[in-house]
Structure formats: C-alpha cells, structure tokens
Amino acid sequence: MISFENIHKSFGSRGVLQGVSLSVPTGAIRFIIGASGAGKSVLVKHLIGLIRPDQGRISLDGEDITHLTEKGFYTVRMKCAMVFQHSTLFDSMSLIDNVKLPLRKHKNLTSSEAENEAMYRLEQVQMAKDARRYPADIGDGLRKRVAIARALTLDPKYVVFDEPTTGLDPLAAVNVDQLIRELSDEFNVTSIVVSHDLRSIFTVADQIAMLYNGQVLLDGTPDDFRQSDDSVIRQFIEGRATGPMEFPKASRG
C-alpha cells in the first residue's frame, strides 16, 4: 500500500503539483495519466526519493517515508524499483552486466550464481541471446525489456514504470504491456504506470488517476473513464486537439 497525501511541488515559480492525493493498493496496476507536463513523472519520482516534496506526506506500507535521508531511501528503493522512460541502461556495460550490477551490490552471491541469476532474468524477458551485447547496439523496445529485467532483480514489491510504451513501435509496446500484466498476475507485483498511451491505459490498467492542473481530476476504473462526461477527460480520451485542456509549454513528463 502506497499513499500520497496532499503533495505540493514547485519548480521555480511553476507549481507542478498542487495538492495531489492518491493511493495504490497492493497487487493492482495503477495508471497515472495526463498530458505532457502534468507532473506525472514528478509525482512518482517522489516515491523513491529522487524528488522531495515541498509539502505533503508519502507513506509506504504504513511507514512515513517523506523525510528519509538519501541513505534511508535505499531500503525503500530495494522494495520499489523504477523503469525509466528512456530505459537508462548503463552504456559502459553489456546487457548482462547491467542486470548483474544490483545482484553484485546487494546479494551475497558468487560470481557464477550472479551470472545464472542474471541470465534467468534476461530469459524472463526473452533477451538471453543478446546478453553480451551493449545497450547502444539494440533497439528501444529491447532496451526497455532489459531495463525491466534489471528492475526486477531485487524482487521488488512495487515497480514504477515511467512512460513504458512511449517511443516504442506498436508491437514492442504490446509486448511491454503484456509484461506488466504478467508481473501483476503471476508475481503479485504492484505496478505504478505513468502513461499517456490510450491503448495501454484501457488494456492494462486496474485503476486510473488523471492529473490535470496539478491536481487529481478523476480517480477510478477504466469504465469510470469511458463513461465520464467531464469535458477534459473526453478531450483526452478522444484525442482532440481542441477543448478545455490547455497544453503547458514545458515538457517535463
């Protein structure tokens, strides 16, 4: 169980989050949607301490983590993994070394055990055959799969996906959606997905929260969204360029 209570965050004079409250029940796939610049990524980065709130309270499994130190957040980050928007693999390492890194640092494994474990993780995402290649040599979709494998190495309870399907070709995007669904169904992993990809929103999500003007506009199931007659939500779902939603100029996701 994760809960955000009344989170405020400004960058300079721009109030990106103005009192956002939402909770993520264990085992669910929770989507956070909204236009570019609505503060979706900013919100989820609060959970793992990459961004600190100006005001508000964040709790994880009943424990208040708002004011933890950087070192204190390490235990949180072992429980909550993150898959970055651009995958963010380490360029200087082969794919298997990328996956092996958290194992080497946090688990007392011999090097052959770590190798086997990393290979198993890569197999899970069908990347075992490319294990010795480097991030620069493979496409975006494959990089994303390796990033997911790396995030899962420490058996996290929660995984944050920052725009997992943005910039992928449709086939790769479906593939990633399936992976997220499997994680939830088979391993009871709770997923928090930041997205504005309508197709994945309506095929994968259990619960959706829409951010608009720094606040939660609607929090509900996909059906609630389909049936909503709020003009902003209709504009978003129908993908119209004209409507009440003004697009902020800055592109912080």
């Binding site: 793992i48 301490g49 990459l50 950087e70 070192k71 957040f73 390490y74 235990t75 980050r77 072992m78 993994a81 993150m82 970055f84 651009h86 963010t88 693999l89 380490f90 360029d91 890194l101 958290p102 640092k105 946090h106 790396r150 420490l154």
Partner: peptide
C-alpha cells in the same frame, strides 16, 4: 556529465547504489 544528463546516475540511485 553524460551519465547525469541521461539519468544514469539517478538509475544507480534507484538501484540503491551510492
């Protein structure tokens, strides 16, 4: 600098590596 700009340093932090 490249690691910072491409968020690789943040990725290290999220893997609980200092």
């Amino acid at each position: 600098g490249t690691m910072v700009v491409t968020e690789q340093v943040d990725a290290l932090r999220t893997l609980a590596i200092d």
